[in-house]
Amino acid sequence: MEKLALSEQIEFRNVTKLYGQVIAVRSLSLTVGRGEFLTILGPSGSGKTTTLMLLAGFEAPTEGDIRIAGKSVASVPSYRRDQGVVFQSYALFPHLTVRRNLEFPLEMRGIRSAERAARAERILSRVHLDGLGDRMPSQLSGGQQQRVALARALIADPPILLLDEPLGALDRNLREQMQGEIKGLHKEFGITTVCVTHDQEEALTLSDRIVVMNAGRIEQTDTPEALYDRPVSRFVANFLGDANILDDPSFAVESDTPQPDGTVAMIRPERIRISAPGATKSADADQRQHVAGTVTDMIYAGPLRRYHVAVGDNDVVIREHVAAGRQIFQIGDTIQLDWLRSDIRFVTT
């Protein structure tokens, strides 16, 4: 029998899930290390939520096996898997106080009343909800309800935490605040965490590794930095941030590396500099490709200014930080673009 490495806590082995004739997950193989924060990222219908439901035990695989700590759990029901789960809808019991919501999973495990109360107070303090134990969920804000849901998932010290679009119902400021809270809790508790989201920023902020899924398959798995900087396909490049795909055949892309067959050139918007024609060239000008273009759009977005520039048949997007004294270009302006040849990446089509 194959022995699972000690560092691996979760393993999917060639898992397929069918709903009638629809293939939701195709031959998925994936391992998650002990203590790792892994995010499954993808658009609607990519199979990411089905993958999480399979791990949680709410769905059973049609083919393949799922192992936790080396033991198959494919046929183990959800209530017998020692996992904490947080849903986008929070799933708090509306008729129970915050304290009773927290104590409920401990009561189901037969833990005594005094110990339940002590644990509830400790976890309330940890998620900054001191003094709110007697409130009903309806008396809390969305951010506070999400903290209660996290606390309830963590209170029984499960070895695995599953997060299903945990911040999708919150506004932007609360999402950013809760991202920091989740990251801090993961660091403190060291729980193996699997998160599902379609929010690229959330995935980049929280994760040790990201799995990008498309049409039930894994497109690429890597660290956030590697995925963003070195996407392997056009899909990953476009899904994880903005990407300039330079596929106009009449435009010659210069690169430090040869272009593999079946690929197109790609560069990220923040890697491109925009300047007026005839502007002084930088000290590394010999390492850069310089091209002329015409501004087709300019969008002000607070700290960033976003330009669209026509270069041949390519629509090139540039993002630059707004700063005092920086020249602002208008629609119709002829401008100069340049970028390091080493910043060009090649992705499959």
Rank of each mutant, 00 (worst) to 15 (best):
D65C: 03
A69Q: 13
G70F: 12
G70M: 09
G70I: 10
G70V: 12
S72C: 09
S72H: 02
V73M: 09
A74W: 07
S75H: 11
S75E: 15
P77G: 04
P77E: 12
P77F: 05
S78Y: 04
R80T: 05
D82M: 02
D82N: 12
V85W: 03
V85E: 00
F87C: 02
Q88W: 04
Y90W: 11
A91K: 04
L92W: 05
P94T: 07
H95A: 11
H95W: 10
L96A: 04
L96P: 07
T97L: 07
T97S: 15
R99K: 14
R100H: 06
N101A: 09
N101K: 07
L102Q: 02
L102F: 08
F104L: 13
F104I: 01
F104T: 10
P105E: 00
P105V: 02
P105T: 03
E107T: 10
E107M: 14
M108S: 04
R109Y: 12
I111G: 00
I111Q: 03
R112H: 13
R112T: 04
E115D: 12
E115Y: 08
E115F: 07
R116T: 02
A117W: 08
A117L: 10
A118N: 13
R119S: 12
R122G: 04
L124P: 03
H128K: 13
H128A: 15
D130K: 14
G131E: 01
G131W: 08
L132D: 01
D134V: 10
D134H: 15
M136F: 10
P137G: 07
S138L: 10
S141D: 08
G142I: 09
G142P: 06
G142R: 01
G143R: 05
Q144D: 05
Q144G: 05
Q144P: 11
Q144T: 02
Q145T: 01
Q145G: 01
Q145H: 01
Q146G: 01
R147G: 03
V148M: 03
L150G: 01
A151Q: 06
A153P: 09
L154T: 05
I155C: 08
D157I: 09
D157K: 13
P158N: 08
P158H: 04
P159G: 08
L161E: 06
D164C: 05
D164G: 08
D164Q: 14
D164E: 07
D164N: 02
